[in-house]
Design a protein around this nucleic acid. Structure first.
Lengths: 150, 150
DNA sequence: ATACCTGCAAAGTCTTTGCAACATG
DNA sequence: CATGTTGCAAAGACTTTGCAGGTAT
């Protein structure tokens, strides 16, 4: 697996974070977290449920929802808001600020790292008097394949 | 109404767009569109349903959903994807490219106009080979009021 | 031993759909 | 008057919740 190198330290960090807050490391949680660390994709609840079921048969959907809530509360995952009407998730890697490009045709999701938003923060903070903590950008377009075939 | 000046030409443009595509101007549609043009907010389906019911009693929720689908297909409204799990809408004004700032505490939504994304488009297009057509940024923070009281 | 956690099924919420009556162009 | 549109209610999709039994620490 390409990203295996990131596996152990990240997994340990996540487990510690969970324990630190008084929650427990359980089979279903581990299976979900390991899947999230390994996958290159941006799974939704259904993807998680069906994929994790392979490692952990018998897991219930409710557990998947509850685990994702927990991970989000602990700031261990990001939630992607796309126009699909459901959420997709990705594990947060340290030092990996990126955004997403979505193909309007085939729905493929690609990450991109260039982000110059930080240059704007001061401007926006002074014009709106908000204190900004985070941001998320989604760009829409056509992927190479779909743009060739249209 | 502060934005009355924008009302007539925009309304005409929208009506024409609807007719041009073979759809009809009906009472419920007009009531929804007029509300969207007048409001300063970012209503969700429920807001629309209850507000528009005042002008047009008896309207059904299904009609609100269907009208918003139509307006989105014709590119007359923007959909805001926020972590609330439901969509919010805004009418598209010509020459008004902006993004949104959301207060994490009180959920207030504020628009900001600074956007330097266009400088990145070429970079992203060449590194990903996508053709980009639009983008949307949401920043999260604390509004002046909430940041004072915390 | 004591929280916490799980799967299940039921309940809840939000959105879509089928349909007969109606309205627009 | 042909075609699109509407409100309603039912169906569908997705998410949350209550609970009794199970499990991590």
């Amino acid at each position: 697996m390409a990203n295996n190198f990131r596996f152990k330290p990240l997994l340990e960090k996540i487990k510690n974070e969970i324990k630190k807050h008084g929650y427990k490391i359980t089979g279903p949680r581990l299976a979900i977290i390991e899947f999230l660390i390994h996958t290159e994709g941006h799974p939704d609840i259904d993807d998680l449920y069906s994929e994790v079921s392979k490692d952990y048969p018998g897991i219930g959907v409710a557990t998947v929802y509850r685990t994702m809530d927990l991970l989000r509360q602990l700031n261990l995952i990001n939630t992607l808001e796309l126009p699909e009407g459901r959420q997709r998730y990705e594990i947060i890697l340290p030092e990996d600020h990126h955004h997403h490009l979505v193909c309007m045709e085939c729905k493929r999701i690609v990450e991109f790292g260039n982000c110059n938003f930080k240059h704007l923060v001061e401007d926006i903070e002074s014009s709106t008097r908000f204190k900004i903590y985070s941001h998320s950008t989604v760009a829409y377009g056509l992927c190479p394949h779909c743009s060739a075939s249209s």
